[in-house]
Structures are given as structure tokens and as C-alpha cells.
Design a protein around this nucleic acid. Structure first.
Lengths: 350, 350
DNA sequence: CTGAAAGCGCTAACAC
DNA sequence: GTGTTAGCGCTTTCAG
């Protein structure tokens, strides 16, 4: 039933030359070593028969499959698709395809999936998961498989990583709030078992110091997940604490959206009474009122950069040509969820 | 540098048996044909050495790579990630991995990508693109490659397809509007070169007939893309036409969102003055005011179903056991963007 | 029950 | 320049 594919042997028979000659004629670099006439005759036959190289067979021989593995926590999270397109935009034109797997941020799933990828002979792996440490990918890298991580680094390893300048993002955002007159600024932190949550909290603390703002631990509420519900819960917690604050810097957009909703429930207007900021700049933000002030991450370029570095690794470029650390710039996007602190708030005694 | 993997040969040497024996011992079905003692000794050695089968090599031999190809227009479109997770949820536990490619709905890209997948020896393809016809995938299927399409059927082919009951969705929605007293209902149609756009327009027309509502061609505006901007443009066009309407049924959520925004620009309130409905039930809809009344499609189950059917095909199940057509139910989700038509509108002379 | 041998389709030394 | 040869790691006859 399943029609058999045209192989080199078929073309060899057709053109009356040896398969190795055919192989050479069809290989853009080896082609030079062959009489032009023969080469083009072979090419013609290949085209006529509709020959397609069997990468499985080639891969077995060369140990290169022209496919890479991409590991992400969850494709359903809107920040990842743009990253994937970024990766694809550099790899696909070069003939690479990607096997994409979702780790759900589970350690054992992640371990298993690394094997799934290696079993299929991927030439390299781009790892965009967010667990703080994970042995499996480090081991793969140590054994010589090209690996690049996105959004976080693997401690004690020689794995190149690409991260976004989240510190700068948080700091700029805090500066923005300070410039609007805010002094009592809460932080809705992300889960502390995810690198993103942890990093951003640290960044918030550092930024406060940099900007000479008080850092009040009581004004930090920590979410258990990056979702609207947790954002709402955190704000509730903050409100219940009785500590006053005029702005809430949230560790991501979903937390911020949940926070704004919850404030509304309490009859508190954002941004008039409390300013709220997000992080990531998800799509659709423009459609939600008030339009959220947030930090834009260039997911697409992050993907491109990761792919570019991975390529160098796969090409065996020498170590000094491979950037171990790439920090991508972020930018704050000021929209409607932040406003100047109200007079009566500002004028209060310190 | 690159550490060499453990092969059957290694564990054959280790255990003092022939590689074919090792191969059998490690194959769950062949294992029975081997002395239990030997088999477990081999198993132990394999575990100890950390053996992982090389699927490339196995694939070359068996023509099964345990990887499938998934073609979608654009992973960045929120409706696709849930489909992918649905596919993964049935395929991954069975040992399959997926190569995912984005077609951008371009015919030639699509053709090329089918080859990309076939070159890598995928065992089957799930094709969720939306172009109305496309020869490449039909050819692949005709040559015996297991193929299933999602969201649309390929004409004149024996390719099983899974679609959502969009007709019912549109009809239910129209009924909902009619029950609210609406009689002059506009349709913001999707691009007519995409099956979704075309199907939903046809469904709208049919539903109008079914429900004995007038179908007024002048109350149809056609978008060139499925986005907010086009939704806005279409509403502008409808408004400019001077034709009165009290509701607009849009071919998808983004068009609806754009429509509502544009109405607001014109000082027209949704739903008080004009009701608007969407289609798809994208995530985040809950966060946008007014909350959109829409048709929910079960993307995850659609993916699961597609994978299940593909499995049957790949297993070589006999034709009568393979459902050629699967129509998945949809449901309407009534939220806040639809309301009873206003008295003064309703009481007007026919 | 296990070993021997062939071969999937391709590439890469090595000859000539 | 082109043919010969030898595998890549695995599965699968076919013997024994």
C-alpha cells in the first residue's frame, strides 16, 4: 500500500552511474568533484523521479538529523509561541525542523522528554523551561549535545543562556512609578520555585535600593501560580494587611490583570487610586481596560538569538566565538494602568 | 567530544550474547521468545549502562520513527496551542513525539513543509491548516502516508477529518439573538479564502433560513483577516451603509472584539444598543469588558480526536473501523455582549 | 531459544 | 572523476 520512495539507488540505475556518484552529485558541496555533465544528468533524473533524500538514513550515517528539540513548559502559555516562531525563523530556512515538547514544569517529565529528544537524534536542544535547576539537560550538555537555555541559566554548567534584562525592566518600571510620585509600592511576586518569580522579586528589592525607595517586606505578596486568580488573592491579602500602598508592581501580566479586577471588586479604581503594572506584554493587552502598563519582552528575538547561538554550537564553532551569556533588552510600555499619585496621598506626612 | 551512546552491541559484549538476542530481550513483544534468565540479565545490563534505543537506526529498518508531523497555520494564534496539547495528550504516552510546523496559510510553504516532514520519516501527519484545498497533503495521503485533517476536509480524498459543528454553533447563536428579540442581524464574515470564513458565512445564511429570519446581503461585511482591525473596519462599513441592525454575529472573537471597540468609538453601547457575538471562545475573554458572548470550541478534544484517528490509521486498522468524518459538538457561551433588543427598536414597524 | 547474516538508505574513506 | 567498500544501529528473516 505505502508507496515506496525513490532512493539513490533508483537514480543510479536510471542514470547508469554508481550510487555514490549520485550521492555526490546531489550534495551541493561534493558536487564540484563531479563532471558537470554527469552531475546535471543526475540532477535531472532526481527531479524527474521526484527524489527526496531520506534524512533518517543520512542521519544514521552522519549523526545529524537536521532536527532540533525545543522544550517549553506549556505551549498554551502565550509567551511561548512567539519564541517558537523566532526559533523557527532562523532554523527553518537552514533546513532544520523542530520537535516541540511541553514539560509542564515537572522535573521527571522534563527528564523523560530530554530522552525522547535524544532518542530521535536531535542535533541540539533549546530549553526554555523555568525550573531552577535540572540535571537531565545539564547531563545531556555535558555529554556533548549542543544545548542553549532561554530565560534562565543552569548553574555550574557551560551551557550558553539567553535571558531578558528583567532587572532593568523591573527597575525602569519602579522608576516610572516613583516618577509618578508613588512611594508605597507593593510587589505581587510570582511563584518562588520558578526562576522568573524569584528573579523578579530579587530585582524588585535591588531596584528599590537603587532608587532609594523603602523596601517593605510586608508589601510583598507571593502568588502560588502565575494566574489572574492568584493576582486577585495577593491583592486581597495586601488590602487586608491594612498597609497602605498606592501602586502594585506585579511579576507578570496575568497577576496584574487579576489584581486590577480585584481592586475593582473592592471599589478601588485603577489607576486613579492605585496604579498597577505587569510584565511580559502579552497579546490582547490592548483590548483590556484599563490598558496595562507593562514590561515588553521581545520573545521573538529571544527565540532567534537562542537559535543563532545553538547553530554556532552545532557547527562546532570554537568556544570563544560562542556567547555564553546574552542579555536581551526589554522596554517598558506605559499605558493606562498607571497614573500620578493623588494629591491627598502625596501630601500626606511621611 | 560528543560522548558515544551505548548500543546493542555494547550490551551484547557485556552480557556475552549476540546483538539480535539483545534486541529481542529489549523488545516487549519478542521478549517472550527468550529464556527469562537471559532476558533479565540483558535488561539489567541495559539499565546499568543506561541504554537508550536509537530510534533513527530502528526507523531506518522499520520505517517507523514514532514521530508525527503536525501542521498548523500559526502557533501564535491562540486557538492552536490547546489543539497541540490535545494531540500530545494522546500521542506522547504512547511514545510519539511531534514535529510542529507553521504554514502561515501559504500554499507553497505548505507544500515544502509536507516534504520536510516526510523527509524525516514521520509516521503520520495531522493537518490543521485552513486553506481550502491543497494538493501536497492529498498526494502524501494518496501515497499511503496516514493523514488526518482538522477543521476542514480535503475535497475528493479519502482523508479522515475532524471538524467542529460550526453550523450548529452559528445556528444556536442566531437563535439566541432572535430569542432576544433581534431581527436585523448583521454578519461580520471572515476571509472567504479560508474555510472557516466561508463555512461560517454559509452557516449564517442557512441558519437564517432555518429560523425564518431575513437574510440581507447588505448586512454582511467581509473581513480580509481575522483580526480586531478588520472587525472594526467591517462595523464601520456596516454603520456607513445606513442599514439598521441591532446585533452583529461575528465569525470569530477577534472580529467581535474589534467590532465592539469600534462601536464604542461611535458612541454606541454594546450590548445596550447593539449586541455582538464572537466565535472560538479564546482565553482571556473573561477579562475583556463587556464579556463576550461566543461559541466555545473544544480545541483540546479536537486535538485528541485527531490523534486518536491518526493512531488507527497508523496501526493499519481496517477501513471500516476508521471514522472518516467526526463532527465535534460546540456550545454557546452567553456572557454580557448580548442583550434583549430595546423596546423602541423592537416596536418599530416591520 | 539463540546465533548468523542481510540490509534499511545513505555517506565517506579508499581505490583506480 | 567515479566506482568499491564498509559501515551507522537496528530488526528480522533464516538456520541450527
Amino acid at each position: 500500500m505505502r508507496q515506496k520512495r525513490i532512493t539513490l539507488k533508483d537514480i543510479a540505475r536510471e542514470t547508469g552511474v554508481h550510487v555514490s556518484t549520485v550521492s555526490r552529485a546531489l550534495d551541493p558541496v561534493e558536487r564540484k568533484s563531479i563532471t558537470e555533465e554527469v552531475a546535471s544528468r543526475i540532477q535531472a533524473a532526481a527531479d524527474a523521479l521526484g527524489y527526496r533524500p531520506n534524512r533518517i538514513a543520512a542521519g544514521l550515517r552522519t549523526n545529524r538529523t537536521m532536527t532540533v528539540g525545543v522544550m517549553i513548559p506549556d505551549i498554551t502559555n502565550v509567551i511561548f509561541p512567539p519564541i517558537l516562531r523566532g526559533i523557527e525563523s532562523v532554523l527553518e530556512p537552514l533546513g532544520y525542523a523542530s520537535i516541540i515538547v511541553n514539560t509542564d514544569s515537572e522535573r521527571d517529565r522534563e527528564t523523560r522528554l530530554v530522552d525522547v529528544l535524544r532518542d530521535r537524534g536531535v542535533d541540539g536542544i533549546i530549553h526554555a523551561a523555568v525550573l531552577r535547576s535540572d540535571p537531565s539537560i545539564a547531563r545531556a550538555a555535558a555529554e556533548g549535545l549542543p544545548v542553549v537555555t532561554l530565560n534562565r541559566k543552569v548553574e555550574n554548567s557551560q551551557i550558553p543562556y539567553i535571558i531578558n534584562d528583567e532587572d532593568a525592566g523591573i527597575c525602569e518600571m519602579l522608576r516610572h512609578l516613583r516618577d509618578l510620585g508613588h512611594r508605597d509600592i507593593a510587589h505581587v511576586a510570582g511563584p518562588q520555585d520558578l526562576s522568573t518569580g524569584q528573579l523578579r522579586l530579587a530585582a524588585f528589592r535591588n531596584a528599590a535600593a537603587t532608587l532609594s525607595l523603602d523596601f517593605d517586606p510586608a508589601l510583598v505578596a507571593t502568588a502560588r501560580r502565575f494566574d489572574e486568580k492568584e493576582g486577585a488573592r495577593c491583592i486581597r491579602e495586601l488590602l487586608a494587611s491594612g498597609r497602605r500602598f498606592t501602586a502594585a508592581l506585579c511579576a507578570n501580566d496575568r497577576l496584574a490583570l487579576g489584581a486590577i479586577d480585584e481592586l475593582r471588586e473592592h471599589g478601588i479604581d485603577c489607576p486613579r487610586e492605585i496604579s498597577v503594572t505587569g510584565f511580559n506584554d502579552m497579546p490582547f493587552l490592548e483590548l483590556i481596560r484599563p490598558r496595562l502598563t507593562t514590561v515588553r519582552i521581545l520573545q521573538h528575538s529571544a527565540g532567534q538569538t537562542a537559535a543563532t547561538v545553538l547553530l554556532k554550537l552545532m557547527n562546532g564553532d570554537k568556544a570563544e566565538d560562542i556567547p555564553m551569556e546574552t542579555i536581551l533588552p526589554v522596554e517598558i510600555v506605559v499605558r493606562e494602568s498607571t497614573a500620578r499619585v493623588r494629591q491627598d496621598d502625596e501630601d500626606r506626612p511621611a
